[in-house]
Simulated scan of single mutants.
Amino acid sequence: MKFLPKRAGMLALMVAGLLVQPPGGGAVMAAGPSIAPAPPPEVAAIPVSMLVDLNSGQILTERRPDVPFLPASVTKVMTAYVAFEEIAAGRLHFDQRFPVPEDASKEWWAKGTSMYLTPQDRPTLAELLHGIMTNSANDACIVLARGAAGSVDNWTAKMNAAARRLGMSRSHYHTPNGWMDDGLTYVTARDLVRLSDAMTMNYPRFYRAFSGRKHYFWRDVAMRSHDPTVGVVPGADGIKTGYTREAGYNFLGSAERNGRRLVMVLAGTPTFRERDAAARALLEWGFSAWSARPLFDKGATIATARVQGGAAYAVPMVADRDVIATLPAGTSPQIGLTVRYKGPVKAPIAKGQRIGTLEIRVGNLPPGHVPLRAGRDVAVAGPVDRLRNGFMNLLQ
């Protein structure tokens, strides 16, 4: 790997001769019409659509990605994500049992999709998450929200706090289950891709445990998923469908093949048949019409960032996934890479902390962006560290 000069927190790199990128950060773009393949015709009439390759961050196709829409039961993905965060922090446990308040049972009994929870039930958190992700159970979301946070309002506050941390700047949650609330709950396709990225990359074990199941049994209640891709499209493993009269038919879907993960959003579809056909066609097109050019293995050092006030002078920048460039199948366009970070990065730095971004440019296609994280901890500098760092600065 050869590093070119850094300028204002931007690093241009050359990887295996793939790249010609000027130090000033200007993109090298191919001239002429776009080389992107045309998306499948089944998607043309869908009001909102988006397909992203998470391993390159490249958007393969998009239609109204930043227009807010009603998510319906796709809302439940954020409820599951917040539960995953709470489990990882030790504040919730899979075998933890939850009471079913009598008023919640009465209000949500058979209201939309349901687990038919009664005050005599004490479901575990794992059972509630299966009900939420597989069956889309509205009552399970309410029981989880009230049991884990004390109230629905407290739980939705956690959902909105998570959305802010993930950069979901055009989304808002007012309900944990997506039930109609006069438009107070809304999302965008781009924001849902951010949520999917965080769920699949931050909590892959939890994601595999609760997403992509076709059936789950709660007592004598047989719960069935409406996912149109799992078991049909190779590699499809979720994530969530949604429907209300106001929202139409929505789908947040994902699939992984050969280590490459795609995430798809479809929203506002008039019928479930149109949504399901578009979902299957779009995922297949994403894998067949595009190919992967490997760039970096997960955890490999892509660049280094200067550190301010740290026990180390620099910290490695790594990706939390295998990194590729996504190319239209059968083409060999120029690939440009640029590392961006605001530096120097101030210590202390925690391993896994996001500190930069790798920008990937393929020909004249829109760039993709992959998050870069600290490859190790860097503590605040002691006296000897400060002397060494000062000497190193004199040599620059």
Rank of each mutant, 00 (worst) to 15 (best):
P23C: 10
R388M: 10
S136D: 07
L295H: 05
P176N: 06
L13S: 01
N202I: 07
Y81D: 07
F206P: 04
W108P: 09
D276Q: 06
A126K: 01
A44L: 06
V20N: 13
G178A: 05
D182M: 05
I46L: 08
G112D: 15
L327E: 00
N135K: 10
G390V: 01
R97L: 11
A267Q: 00
A381D: 14
P204S: 10
F217K: 14
Q96G: 07
F251I: 01
W109T: 04
W109P: 09
L372S: 06
T79F: 09
R194Y: 08
R245K: 13
P228V: 02
F210Y: 14
H215V: 13
K351S: 08
Q58V: 06
Y203C: 11
F296K: 02
A247Y: 03
I87A: 06
A80T: 13
L283F: 02
T113Y: 11
M199G: 05
A279S: 11
L166I: 12
H174V: 02
M159Q: 12
A255W: 01
L19H: 09
G32T: 11
A88Y: 13
L125T: 01
T79M: 08
F251Q: 02
N258C: 03
L129K: 08
D181F: 04
A329W: 02
I324H: 01
A104K: 12
A16P: 10
R170C: 08
E85H: 10
P37G: 08
T338D: 02
A126Y: 00
L19A: 15
S56L: 00
V152A: 08
G368H: 05
R376W: 04
A311H: 14
R64Y: 14
D385E: 09
N389V: 03
A277G: 13
L18G: 07
P47Q: 09
E359M: 10
P367R: 11
T326F: 02
P348T: 14
Y243M: 04
N154R: 10
A36T: 08
P22Y: 13
L395E: 05
S169C: 07
P39Y: 05
E107G: 07
F296A: 02
A319R: 00
K158W: 07
A247D: 02
L166N: 14
K342W: 11
R280N: 05
L295P: 03
Y186K: 12
M264L: 14
F84W: 11
D121C: 06
G248C: 09
A312M: 15
A161Y: 10
R340A: 11
L11F: 09
P119V: 06
E246Q: 09
R321E: 07
G382W: 14
L51W: 08
L166H: 13
W218L: 07
E102S: 10
D237E: 09
P23S: 14
R261F: 13
P101A: 03
M264Y: 06
A36W: 01
H369V: 06
V380M: 15
G382Q: 13
I355V: 14
Q308N: 11
V15W: 15
G112M: 07
S211I: 04
P344E: 12
V100H: 08
A325N: 03
F272G: 13
R91F: 12
V384R: 15
V233Y: 05
F217Q: 14
T304M: 10
K240Q: 10
L13Q: 08
R213H: 15
A209P: 00
A379G: 10
P344C: 05
A31Y: 05
M10I: 15
P176K: 07
K106F: 15
R275I: 00
